[in-house]
Simulated assay, not measured.
Amino acid sequence: MDVRLLAASAAFALVSSITPGPNNLMLASSGLAFGFRRTLPLLLGVQAGFQCLLLAVAAGLGVVFQRHAEVQWALKLVGAAYLLYLAHGLWRSSSTGSAAMDRPIGFFKAAAFQVLNPKAWMMCLSAVGAYTLAGAAYWPSVWRLVALFFVLGLPSITLWAVFGSAFRAAFQNPETARRVGRALAVVTGASCLLVLL
């Protein structure tokens, strides 16, 4: 095992997991609206869905995705539309004072969303393309990536849910709730531009 490759792939897993993206925005919003405990199914669904996507890309699905630009474009459009839907819900809830969602996003819905999440695809394609080894070492290097994204990715995305939960008390003030909800709506909506670029 190459220590430099391990260090580089660990750094990639950490940085790509902890930076803002659709999953982390959903986790922060859910933590804010429902608290950490009720956000756990969403958190675990995101992690499980991402790990399944990583394995699917490693097994060859990424090749189809790379060869057919129309599939990539369709996924980007659907992912951007879902983000706009979330942004609209956040903006509307900040105007009416209601919760952004009636209930937190569940495990299976969060896991399924990874198929539409452009950042998750980019992370998986980049990780498999850059940090796996050829030949007999291929699958051991894939499993090493899966382990790294679990050990480093899960705590990274958990921070976003904790961050949202930490501000839950301030969210009880209607004016603060309106401002925070609209700020999250704008950031979520703006992330559509990054998805479509």
Rank of each mutant, 00 (worst) to 15 (best):
M1Q: 14
D2L: 10
D2G: 09
D2N: 15
R4I: 15
R4Y: 14
L5I: 07
L6W: 15
S9I: 05
A11W: 10
F12C: 05
A13G: 03
V15Q: 12
S16F: 14
S17C: 09
I18Q: 06
I18Y: 07
G21F: 08
G21S: 12
N23E: 06
N23I: 05
L25A: 10
M26E: 00
A28K: 02
L32G: 00
T39L: 04
L43M: 12
L43H: 00
L44V: 13
G45P: 01
V46C: 12
Q47H: 13
A48T: 14
G49V: 04
F50S: 00
Q51I: 15
L53W: 05
L54A: 04
L55S: 04
L55T: 04
A58Y: 02
L61Q: 06
V63D: 12
Q66M: 14
H68K: 10
A69P: 05
E70I: 12
E70F: 13
E70Y: 12
Q72P: 06
Q72K: 15
A74E: 11
K76E: 13
L77N: 04
A80T: 07
A81H: 09
Y82K: 06
L84N: 05
Y85C: 13
Y85G: 12
L86S: 01
H88R: 14
G89Y: 06
L90Q: 04
L90C: 05
R92M: 13
R92P: 02
R92V: 15
S93F: 01
S93L: 03
S94L: 07
S94F: 09
S94M: 08
S95Q: 15
S98D: 14
A99H: 14
A100R: 01
D102M: 11
R103P: 05
P104Y: 08
I105K: 02
G106D: 15
G106M: 11
F107V: 06
A110M: 06
A112T: 10
Q114T: 11
V115R: 03
V115F: 15
L116K: 03
N117A: 10
P118F: 13
A120R: 00
A120W: 00
W121H: 06
W121Q: 04
M122R: 08
M122Q: 12
L125E: 08
A127C: 12
L133P: 02
A134P: 07
A134V: 14
A137H: 08
Y138C: 09
Y138M: 09
P140L: 10
P140G: 09
V142K: 00
V142G: 01
W143P: 02
L145T: 01
V146M: 02
A147E: 08
L148P: 00
L148A: 03
V151S: 04
G153F: 00
G153C: 04
G153E: 01
L154R: 01
L154Y: 05
S156R: 08
S156I: 11
S156A: 15
S156F: 09
S156D: 10
W160Q: 02
W160A: 02
V162Q: 06
G164M: 09
S165V: 01
A169G: 10
F171I: 04
Q172A: 14
N173S: 11
E175P: 00
T176K: 12
T176N: 12
T176D: 05
R178W: 08
V186P: 03
T188S: 11
T188A: 11
T188L: 07
A190Y: 09
A190S: 12
C192N: 03
C192H: 03
